[in-house]
Design a protein around this nucleic acid. Structure first.
Length: 426
RNA sequence: GGCGCCGUGGCCGAGUGGUUAGGCAGAGGCCUGCAAAGCCUCGUACACCAGUUCGAGUCUGGUCGGCGCCUCCA
């Protein structure tokens, strides 16, 4: 399988099965309900794991939860609750919402606050090697000590100008590894540099290496994390001589009204809301419809199209099975093996009338539920039976009246040779 | 300003040198008591300009337009 690697800007071939493939995906900062855009890297990670396992790899997926951050403190203060209470509540929302995607859970979901000893140790090591320095209770990484800095984001180090300046920094491009406790911050930990809490980027280096080791195969996350987050992770780990991630995958942003969906812009639709309105299957088909690395527009219109497409798959299972050619699966697999080209894989799937094959392919994406038929309640079945008798007696007025009644109950009567089928209206 | 991505038919969206992507919506037809589902047909898609080539949506250069990152962000 080949994947597009942001670091080398090229497609790279994964080592052959059984791997192992160790994957680390950056998750969300938990201080409110996540939005649909946040679901994209989660879904991508779960699908990659699913497909790689399907093709014989031994896969471990770590998906972190950032539960200590400026946003968490600020929101907790606003709500007048402790930051711990807020982050725990938001973490349980995160679990609820992503559970409802029906894709299962990542193998490990560590939280930053549970990794403090490893983070402190990591920072201590950087300081002892002179790659970082202490300034008034803060610890900063010395960007100038890592010549490859800027490789991931493609920016030249000379072009970088820090927006947020601090007189504590030797160089304005340096970034914080540890931050001393501020009055608003109600959660803090002891460290060799005083009470404080980790900087944003160090938690991921620490968690990834804690659970996957100093070298692992895939690191994923949103395109907006390339810089500074992932650039900084890379700097922290590689400056210590750790190989760190071999392949970097960055998903494109979800756009709403032609601009990126983001909590800071406020143009947000929560994952919860999308699941409630459109259902998990339509959302997954939506995610499948666009190439993972490209930006996609999110709108009612595209969700409507995704829903219709999901129903088209569902209808295949309501018609007779037809054996697919022996090489049918190969076309599907080839699409996914080529940088996980899901839209192309979907196109192959639409050709199939083979129930077993289609169910298996849908299963890769957590969509095997489309193969299941919902049984109509007894009262609707009774209406349909009466309608059948009316049709037999050629009382078509009565038959049509009953059809309307069935539709009011949320079902559709489809006449078939020798009987009928009841199908739930979308 | 710097770095990068992108511009495909009404809509979504694959495709990187030459043969139908696929889906949604629409029109006509077959089927049906009527429908639904399905199947068939249709609308002559590649932002613009120049170039390379026997041949370009696909390569090169330029123009215009959109987006992302450079600052918290999936």
């Amino acid at each position: 399988m080949r994947l597009y690697d942001t670091l080398t800007r090229s497609h790279v071939e994964l080592p052959p099965p059984p791997g192992p493939i160790r994957m680390y995906f950056c998750g969300s900062t938990v201080y409110q309900r996540i939005h649909v855009g946040n679901s994209r890297p989660f879904v991508l990670g779960m699908w990659l794991r699913s497909w790689l396992r399907q093709t014989g790899y031994d896969v471990t997926l770590v998906h972190n939860i950032t539960d200590v951050d400026d946003k968490v403190y600020a929101e907790a203060a606003k709500q007048e609750i402790s930051s711990r209470e807020l982050s725990e509540r938001a973490t349980s929302w995160f679990f609820e919402d992503t559970d409802d995607l029906g894709l299962g859970r990542p193998d490990l979901e560590p939280r930053a606050t549970e990794t403090i000893p490893e983070i402190v140790e990591f920072v201590r090591e950087l300081v002892s090697r002179d790659l970082a320095y202490v300034a008034n209770g803060d610890v900063y990484f010395r960007v100038a000590r890592f010549p490859e800095y800027g490789q991931l984001s493609g920016a030249r180090i000379e072009d970088m100008v820090a927006q947020e300046t601090s007189e504590l920094k030797e160089d304005q491009r340096d970034f914080a590894l540890w931050k001393s406790q501020k009055p608003i911050e109600d959660a803090a930990w002891d460290s060799p540099w005083g009470r404080g809490r980790p900087g944003w980027h160090i938690e991921c280096s620490a968690m990834a290496e804690k659970f996957l080791g100093r070298e692992f195969e895939i690191h994923g996350g949103g395109n907006d994390l390339r810089f500074p987050h992932h650039e900084n992770e890379l700097a922290q780990s590689r400056s210590l001589g750790h190989p760190f991630a071999q392949v970097w995958v960055h998903n494109g942003m979800l756009e709403l009204d032609a601009s990126k969906m983001s909590k800071s812009l406020g143009n947000v639709v929560t994952l919860r809301n999308v699941l409630d309105v459109w259902g998990r299957e339509a959302l997954l088909v939506f995610h499948l419809s666009g190439f993972w690395s490209k930006p996609v527009d999110f709108s009612d219109d595209v969700m409507q199209q995704a829903l219709a497409r999901a129903n088209r798959f569902r209808d295949v299972f309501r018609r007779p099975h037809e054996d697919a050619p022996a090489d049918a699966w190969a076309g599907f697999a080839a699409a996914l093996e080529d940088d996980f080209n899901a839209p192309a894989a979907l196109a192959v799937m639409h050709e199939w009338r083979d129930h077993e094959l289609l169910r298996r392919a849908l299963g890769v994406f957590g969509l095997a539920t489309l193969a299941e038929q919902e049984a109509a309640p007894a009262e609707v079945t009774e209406l349909a039976d009466r309608r059948q008798r009316a049709r037999a007696e050629r009382d078509f007025d009565e038959a049509d009246r009953l059809r309307v009644e069935i539709e009011r109950a949320g079902w559709e009567a489809r006449d078939e040779p020798g009987g009928y089928r009841l199908v739930r209206l979308p």
